[in-house]
Amino acid sequence: MSKSFFIDTTLCTACRACQVACKQWHDLPAEETENRGTYENPADLSFDTYKLVRMREEVIGGKLQWLFFPEQCRHCAEAPCLDTAGDETAVYKDAATGAIIFTANTKGLNVDEIIESCPYNIPRKGPDGTLAKCDMCLDRVHNGLLPACVKTCPTGAMNFGERSEMVALAKSRLSTVKKTNPKAALLDPDDVNVIYLVTEKPSLYHEFAVASNTAFDITRQVALRRMFKPLTNIVSRLL
């Protein structure tokens, strides 16, 4: 059975505990940042930052919304990065959970190609050329604990469990949220193990919120072995 996250952005308050909990558990160093005219920081995912809450101010239908999107690796069902790497000692799928795991052996591979293959623009290169990203807190999960980001989330925005349970939860929340937000949708739910629920156009949350975002560089898509389906088809197929 694979595991999945369900991230309900309608409940996210951008408290960013998930960002810190991730660093805390993984003993990741802080980055030197500066205020760039936004609360969002660091500016991007990095070798030392696997989780990042994107914060966007948008006026939609005359109403101001502050959209929050806790970004992380989607642990794709058919992960392009894994196929691109082609080395099971460097990138592999954990059989028990479906987690896509990067190891120190990514060093020396063509990491730029691996990065380029990711439809969500997740992997990041370290100073010595190794790659890093969210590891689903596999040590925790294998020992019966929730991933650090999910455990710390106060509101229920972050959820984790058996894929079937998460899919059911995602569907149930979608149908509730749709009553007040007709545009509500799940992002790429069949293809990934990190399912987001959003209420607005995905690109408003973050450039790489969905795989088939139009802002997406065409070369990146070409690099994919399996093309993701267009947005209109994928968002609500679970219903």
């Binding site: 993984h26 954990d94 028990a96 795991i101 990067f102 890093a132 999960v141 294998h142 929730l146 058996e162």
Partner: peptide, 14 residues
Amino acid sequence: VTGATAAGLAVSGL
């Protein structure tokens, strides 16, 4: 988390 095994095959991080 329910149904987890005691120690799996995992190598996290770097």
